[in-house]
C-alpha cells in the first residue's frame, strides 16, 4: 500500500465514524426530545377538544390558548405593579430630597409600597412557605428516624404514633394548627404572618412522615458486617452514627426527603387556601371566589405552575441526592 491510499482509507474511516456518531446522536435526539414533545402536543390537542365541549357557569372551560393568554396577562400585571412600585419610590425619593434640601435635619421616612401581590409574589410566598415547612420537618424527621432505627425500644414506643398520624389529611390539622398558632404566637411586632406559620406548620406536619419512615428503614437495614466492624473497632456512638449509620441510610433518607417535599408542596396549596397565606393556594381561592370569565383560565395557569414547580423541586432534590451520594454508579431517578 502506498501513502496516498492509506490516507484516503483513513479519511474514509473517519467519515464513516462521524456518520455513525451522527446517526447515534440523531437517535438520541429523537428519544430525548421528539418523543416528549409529541406527547405534549397530543395532550394539548385532546385538552383543546375536551375544553371546547365543556361549558361551565363561568363560561367555556379554558383551552391551551386561553391559558396562554391568561399567563401573558399575569406577567403583564406583574410588570405594571412593579412599575407602579418604582414610581411610588421615586416620588418619595424626590419628595424626601426636597425636604432635606430645605431642612437638613428633617426627619425623612421611606414608606413601603403596599400594592397588591402579583402572581410572581404569590409564587415566591408559596416557595418559601413550603421550604420553611420542609426544613422544620427535616430537622425533626431525620434525628427521630435515626433514633428509631438504632433503638428497637424507641421504635416500639414511637411507631404507633407515627402510624396513627401518617395518614392524617392536612385539612384535619389546619384548624388545630391555626388555633395553636394564634394562641402561642402573640407579639406586637410579629416577624412572621400567622397565616404563613399556620401553612408552614401544616406542611411540616404532613411531610414529616415519609422522611421518618424511610430514615428508620435505612438505618435499620445497615449491613450486619458493618455493624460488626464498628463493634470490633469499639466506635463511639457519635463516630458510629457519622461514619456508618448516616452514610448507609443516605439513599433512603433522600428517598424520604423527596417524597416529603412532594407531599409538602401538594399540602401547601390546600393549606394556603384555608389559611389565606398569600401564595398560590390563595390565588386559586380568590380567583374561584371572583368568578369572572377569566378565572378558570387563571386557575389553570396556577395548576400548571404548581405542576412545573413541583417537578423542578423534585429535580433539585435529585441533583442534591446525586451530589451527596457516595455511590456515583447508582442509577437515581
Amino acid at each position: 500500500m502506498n501513502a496516498p491510499k492509506i490516507r484516503s482509507d483513513i479519511s474514509q474511516r473517519l467519515q464513516q465514524l462521524s456518520l455513525a456518531s451522527l446517526l447515534k446522536g440523531l437517535r438520541r435526539t429523537v428519544k430525548n426530545l421528539v418523543l416528549p414533545l409529541t406527547g405534549i402536543v397530543i395532550f394539548l390537542f385532546i385538552w383543546q377538544i375536551a375544553a371546547s365541549s365543556i361549558v361551565t357557569s363561568l363560561g367555556q372551560f379554558p383551552g391551551p390558548s386561553d391559558v396562554w393568554q391568561q399567563s401573558k396577562t399575569l406577567v403583564a400585571e406583574h410588570r405594571q405593579e412593579r412599575q407602579k412600585a418604582d414610581a411610588f419610590y421615586t416620588r418619595q425619593e424626590v419628595r424626601n430630597a426636597k425636604k432635606l434640601a430645605k431642612n437638613p435635619q428633617a426627619d425623612v421616612k421611606v414608606r413601603p409600597y403596599t400594592g397588591k401581590a402579583t402572581y410572581f409574589d404569590q409564587i415566591f410566598t408559596s416557595l418559601y412557605t413550603v421550604m420553611f415547612g420542609f426544613l422544620v420537618a427535616t430537622f425533626i424527621a431525620i434525628p427521630l428516624g435515626i433514633l428509631c432505627g438504632l433503638s428497637e425500644n424507641a421504635y416500639r414506643a414511637i411507631n404507633p404514633i407515627i402510624q396513627t398520624f401518617k395518614p392524617v389529611s392536612p385539612l384535619a390539622w389546619l384548624p388545630l394548627v391555626t388555633m395553636v398558632v394564634s394562641a402561642l404566637y402573640v407579639s406586637d411586632d410579629p416577624m412572621f404572618e400567622k397565616a404563613f406559620l399556620t401553612s408552614g406548620f401544616t406542611v411540616a406536619l404532613c411531610c414529616l412522615w415519609p422522611t421518618v419512615v424511610n430514615t428508620i428503614v435505612g438505618v435499620a437495614s445497615i449491613n450486619r458486617d458493618l455493624i460488626d466492624v464498628s463493634r470490633v473497632l469499639r466506635l463511639s456512638s457519635p463516630v458510629y452514627i457519622k461514619t456508618i449509620v448516616i452514610p448507609s441510610a443516605t439513599p433512603l433518607i433522600f428517598t424520604g426527603l423527596r417524597l416529603s417535599l412532594a407531599t409538602g408542596w401538594m399540602v401547601l396549596i390546600a393549606a394556603e387556601m384555608l389559611a389565606q397565606n398569600p401564595g398560590l393556594g390563595k390565588f386559586i381561592w380568590d380567583e374561584f371566589q371572583n368568578g369572572s370569565s377569566s378565572s378558570l383560565g387563571r386557575i389553570m395557569v396556577a395548576v400548571i405552575t404548581i405542576g412545573i414547580i413541583g417537578f423542578i423541586l423534585d429535580q433539585l432534590m435529585l441533583a442534591l441526592q446525586k451530589r451527596m451520594s457516595w455511590d456515583k454508579q447508582a442509577v437515581l431517578r
Partner: peptide
C-alpha cells in the same frame, strides 16, 4: 446465617410511604 444478636425492626411494608 445472619447472626441473631440485636435483631432490628424493619417496617418494610411502609418503606415507600
Amino acid at each position: 446465617v445472619a447472626p441473631a444478636s440485636v435483631p432490628k425492626a424493619k417496617p418494610t411494608s411502609s418503606a415507600a410511604a
